[in-house]
Computed example of a mutant assay.
Amino acid sequence: MLGGTPQRNRWSRQGGRAGWIDFLAEARLGALNAELARRGGATPLVEAVAQVIDRLPQWFDDGYLPRASLIHGDLWSGNWAMQADGTPVIYDPAVSCSDAEAELAMMELFGSPPAGFWHAYRATAGLHEGYARRRGLYQLYHLLNHVLLFGGGYAAQALACARALLGRGAP
């Protein structure tokens, strides 16, 4: 579950980049977009997300190869804390095996990671130079979830995100 939204976690029919794009198209963006359409969601948003899905391969044409990583899935500042002794704590997960960049994008959607995070992350795991090109794709998934859960201004934010992705042409 991602909040109150069922989250489809399934193995891709194929591996590698093509498998990830298929998973992102069907189990992530496509699944939420279909639910939004089923509920009578705003046609411009549904159509824009469908166009983003059709163009997914272009955001992965820079040599980036997503690697399956166990991610929290809903990691934002409201879902992490520190104990009195400084031990980090995370909660309210929406766990999946996904691209690590999906986690990073969620961390940036509603704020910024703590000071020192990016330096430590780059030193430990590295960060592909194309992450900034893909960040909006991963954030769109969470924005669509928020549209389904809360409606309101999230629909406008999701539409703006989708349109920004589409307005870039080939990223």
Rank of each mutant, 00 (worst) to 15 (best):
93 P>R: 12
59 W>Q: 02
30 G>S: 06
143 L>A: 02
49 V>N: 02
71 I>K: 00
76 W>Y: 12
104 L>R: 07
53 I>S: 01
87 T>M: 13
113 P>M: 02
8 R>A: 14
15 G>D: 06
142 H>T: 08
85 D>N: 14
113 P>G: 10
161 C>I: 08
61 D>M: 01
90 I>N: 06
167 G>V: 11
73 G>A: 08
38 R>C: 10
62 D>E: 00
165 L>C: 00
24 L>W: 00
124 T>P: 00
141 Y>V: 03
139 Q>Y: 00
142 H>C: 13
44 P>E: 07
165 L>Y: 01
158 A>G: 01
73 G>I: 09
44 P>S: 09
10 R>W: 15
70 L>R: 15
55 R>W: 09
92 D>M: 12
9 N>F: 09
27 A>T: 11
113 P>H: 08
78 G>W: 11
18 A>W: 01
148 L>Y: 05
100 A>S: 08
119 H>P: 11
12 S>H: 06
139 Q>P: 04
60 F>V: 02
142 H>G: 07
83 Q>D: 14
21 I>L: 02
125 A>P: 02
71 I>R: 04
112 S>L: 13
139 Q>T: 03
32 L>A: 04
97 C>F: 14
55 R>P: 13
136 G>Q: 01
71 I>M: 00
84 A>T: 13
31 A>W: 13
74 D>S: 02
167 G>D: 15
153 G>D: 11
12 S>D: 04
77 S>T: 14
156 A>F: 08
73 G>V: 05
45 L>R: 03
2 L>W: 14
33 N>C: 14
71 I>S: 04
86 G>Q: 06
55 R>V: 10
63 G>T: 00
14 Q>L: 09
25 A>C: 08
134 R>P: 00
57 P>W: 01
147 V>D: 07
87 T>C: 13
148 L>M: 12
111 G>C: 14
51 Q>S: 15
128 H>R: 07
158 A>M: 09
120 A>V: 10
132 A>M: 10
30 G>L: 05
30 G>V: 03
104 L>I: 11
135 R>A: 10
34 A>C: 00
163 R>Y: 02
19 G>F: 03
59 W>F: 09
56 L>W: 05
118 W>T: 11
117 F>D: 09
153 G>P: 08
35 E>F: 01
100 A>F: 05
151 G>I: 04
109 L>M: 06
4 G>S: 15
73 G>R: 01
165 L>A: 04
79 N>T: 04
98 S>T: 05
45 L>C: 02
87 T>Q: 15
54 D>I: 00
16 G>H: 08
38 R>P: 02
136 G>H: 01
108 E>Y: 12
2 L>E: 10
25 A>R: 13
